[in-house]
Design a binder for these strands. Sequence first.
DNA 1: TCTGATTTCGGGGCAACCCTAATTTTCTCC
DNA 2: GGAGAAAATTAGGGTTGCCCCGAAATCAGA
Lengths: 215, 215
Amino acid sequence: MSINILLADDHQLTREGVRSLLEGEEDINVVGEALDGRSAVRLARELGPDVILMDVCMPDMNGIVATTLILAENPRIKVIALSMLDDRRFVSNMLRAGASGYLVKDCSFKELARAIRMVIANRTYLSPGIMDVVVKDYVRPPAYSDSPYSSNLTIREKEVLQLVAEGHSTPQIANSLHVSAKTIESHRQNLMAKINAKGIAGLTKYAIREGLTSA
Amino acid sequence: MSINILLADDHQLTREGVRSLLEGEEDINVVGEALDGRSAVRLARELGPDVILMDVCMPDMNGIVATTLILAENPRIKVIALSMLDDRRFVSNMLRAGASGYLVKDCSFKELARAIRMVIANRTYLSPGIMDVVVKDYVRPPAYSDSPYSSNLTIREKEVLQLVAEGHSTPQIANSLHVSAKTIESHRQNLMAKINAKGIAGLTKYAIREGLTSA
DNA sequence: TCTGATTTCGGGGCAACCCTAATTTTCTCC
DNA sequence: GGAGAAAATTAGGGTTGCCCCGAAATCAGA
C-alpha cells in the first residue's frame, strides 16, 4: 500500500527536485503536480491523493485558501505546508485551515519523508523552528501572534511604532507625544516582544509590512 | 571530463532536490553546497568548481555580492543565477556582477541542464522571460537608473548594510566579517552619509528598497 | 473589587552615533 | 611602472540613545 502524493508549488524546479527525491522512496508515489492553488484544488478532487505538499505562497490562489477548500471537500487528505523561511507569519492561518504539517523549505529531505509518514499516521509534524512559534502562541495566547492578520497592537503602540520606523529617536517621540522617554522605551520593548522583532531593524520591517510606513 | 558544480541556496530542500536531479546526469558532479553567500565564496575558493548555481536572495550575503567576489578571485568560474519569479529586478545587477546565466526557479530541469552546458561552452543562457527584461533595458538604456546597486556603494558597504538590516549589531557584524567593530562603525557612518539615511530605520528601509533584505 | 491590560516611569549597561584622523591595500590613469 | 585616487581598515573619545531589568499608576471589564 503506497502513499500517493500531490505536489503543489509554483516553482517547477522545486517540484521536479522533490519528485526526484520522493521517487527514491519505495512506498511513496507522486501522482500529480499543481502549479497554483486553483489547480491544486481541482487535482485533489480528481486524484484523491493521500498527502498534498502545499506551498504557502502561490499565484492565483494561495496555499491557505486552497487547503481550506480541499479539506472541506475531502477531510481525509493530509496537507503538509511548505514555506519560505520568512513566511512564518502564515503558520497559524495554515494550521487553522487544517494543515497536518508545516515545514520550512530549509529542511532536509529526511525531515520531509518523516513528516509524510507522520501525517499518514494521523499525527502532526512541525519543523523545529515552527514549533517555537506555535508554542509561543499557545503559551501566551493568540493576542500576541506575529501574524499580519492579527496584529494586536494598541493605538499607542502603533503610534510609537510608526514614529520609530520613520527614524525618530526615543526623545523625539517622547517629546511629540508629551510623555517621558522612558515610556516610549517601554512601548518599544513591548512591541519587540509582541511582534517578535529584534531591534529597530525588525520593528521597521514590521511597520512596513503593516503599512504603517513605506519603504 | 565531468562538470563540477557548487550549489548555493539557502533552502536545503531545493539543494537536495537539484542535487538529486543533477546526479542523474553522467557528466555532472555536485562537489559542494553552500547555505549562504559567504560560504559560497569560501567554497568556490576551496573547491574551484566549473559552475556555481547561485540563488540571488540569501541571508548573510546575497548572490550578487557573492558573485562579484567569486569572479574577482577566479574569473574562470561560471555563475548561473537562480531566482524567484518576483526577483527579476535583480537581473541587470546579477549580469553586471558577471553571471553567465539567469534562470527563474520556475524552469524545468531540462532547461537547467541546458544552461549548465551552455555556460561551460562560454555562452550565456537566460530564461525566456528574463530575455525580455534584458532586451527592454538594452533598448532603453538606464537613463534614469532606478536599479538597485545603482548607488555608489562599495561591495563591503553592501555587505554591512545587509547585515545591519537583518538586525545584527555592530559587534556581531565585526565578528562575522573578522574585522574591528570600529571598522563596521565607519562603514555605517559612510553608508548613512551616502544614502542620506538616519539611523538603523533609514538604513533598513534603504536595504529593502535595494533588495538587500526583505521586509 | 479584583484581575488584567495599558500607560507610565526609573536605573544601569552597552551599543549607536558623531567627529577626526591615520594606515594599508587596491585601482586607475598617464 | 609610478603617481594619485578610492576603498578598506583601525583608532580615540565623547554624547546620546537603545535595551533589559523592574515597578507604579490608570483604567476596563468580570
